[in-house]
Simulated scan of single mutants.
Amino acid sequence: MPDETSEKSGLKPPLAFGCPNYMKTPMVASRQNWFIRNRMMLLTLAVVVAYAAFIEWFWGWSSILAQWSKVGALPILTALALLTGTYFLRTWRIYDYFPKETTGRFTSLFRVTQVHNLLNIMMPFRTGETSFPVLMRSEFGIPLARGTSALFVMRLLDLHALLTAAGVGLALASPYRALSWIAWAIFLLLPVVGFASRRPLIRLAARTLPKKAQGLVHELERGLPVDISAFARAWLATVVNWLVKVVVLAWALGLMNVTPLSASFGGALGGELSSVLPVHAPGGVGTYPAGITAGAMAFGASSAKAAIENLAQASINAHLLIVVSALTGTAIGLLVGRKRA
């Protein structure tokens, strides 16, 4: 029978233990919260494990890694060192971008950029990008809007540099050489035009947006390079960074018998383009090798069965090289950050 005290007080008696609506125990709730917090990491891990199992089933890891044994240790270590070196150049670009906040703290900034880079590689659909403004705010006190604006500008410069490099190959292959090079030169100068017109665009946004958004517009403006000199340095650092990375990847693909040279160059471009576009699988699994394969085929790789199989294995190894370089950069960042602390 119902408790008379409960009826008089208006309180409902506790539900039976076997009732489906019974309150979850703290342990169950804690486990559910842990899964919710780490669901993206778990998804990434599941995709990577499935990808590794697929490679073992389709080719066998011994066959994949046999390409590296043919290349030799010295070229692999050289490529790894050069790719890791590009992370220092990326850090300098941000260091120069925020001189007031980051001066004297290069090692801390390097750690932040490496954590962001690793998250960006491992998280799907570019969700890792959100870590950059959050990390910059927590480490250097840079407002989220300003950090997001700066990241947006740098990603536009990255995409422009890669598309410009791809345009060189397209212009060389085009039957209309003069027209192609004119179009390429116009595209090359688009960032300059965009930076020169930033103030009219910002004033237009300030007039059209509601007053509550004025602070956001101000922070977005602060996220842009302060002057043409700062813009030129950011642009130059972007070009050098991607030039080194694409050349190293093209060289690595060439060592793994991806021919002709234009195909290895196209493969490097295709892989890196897949890494800056919104459609990006966890860890680049599948999408990065597919980008390499598509780029190599577009730039003249053979369509013979043996050549395609070699290209597929080489694209997986090039992807592994990128992942290992990112892990190496992160390890260095955490190490120097710990010594600094």
Rank of each mutant, 00 (worst) to 15 (best):
M123W: 04
T259Q: 12
S108L: 13
K24C: 00
L162N: 03
W59S: 15
L74W: 07
L11D: 07
V49C: 01
P13L: 13
S229W: 02
W242S: 12
I332S: 07
A306M: 00
A237F: 10
L179A: 13
E4N: 08
F88N: 08
A16C: 06
L11Y: 01
V48W: 06
I94D: 01
A213L: 09
L163M: 10
P278Y: 03
M297E: 05
L236C: 09
L321K: 06
L243W: 08
L77V: 13
A250G: 15
L43K: 11
E101P: 01
W57Y: 10
R338D: 10
G10A: 10
M297I: 15
R203E: 09
N257V: 11
A53L: 15
V240T: 05
W235N: 06
W251L: 00
A326M: 15
W184Q: 13
F299I: 02
S9E: 15
S264R: 11
A165P: 04
W184G: 06
G215S: 11
L162R: 05
V28M: 11
P26F: 04
R338G: 00
L77G: 05
Y95D: 13
T148Q: 03
N117C: 08
S9K: 15
V246K: 02
L277E: 07
R338E: 14
T107M: 04
L311T: 04
L42Q: 11
V246Y: 01
F195N: 02
L277Y: 01
F35C: 07
A331P: 09
V168F: 12
G128V: 01
S138I: 08
K8H: 13
L89E: 04
W235H: 12
F88T: 14
F35Y: 08
V48K: 02
R340G: 00
Y87M: 11
G223A: 09
L77Q: 04
V239A: 04
W184P: 05
R155N: 01
L144V: 05
L190G: 01
P2D: 15
A46K: 14
L82H: 03
L327P: 00
A53S: 10
A50E: 04
L45D: 09
W68H: 11
Y87H: 14
L236P: 04
F54I: 10
K211L: 08
F88D: 02
M297Y: 01
A205V: 14
A237T: 02
L320T: 08
L162C: 02
A79F: 00
L89H: 02
E56K: 14
A341C: 00
D3K: 14
T5L: 07
V49L: 14
R39L: 09
R233V: 14
A171M: 13
G270Q: 00
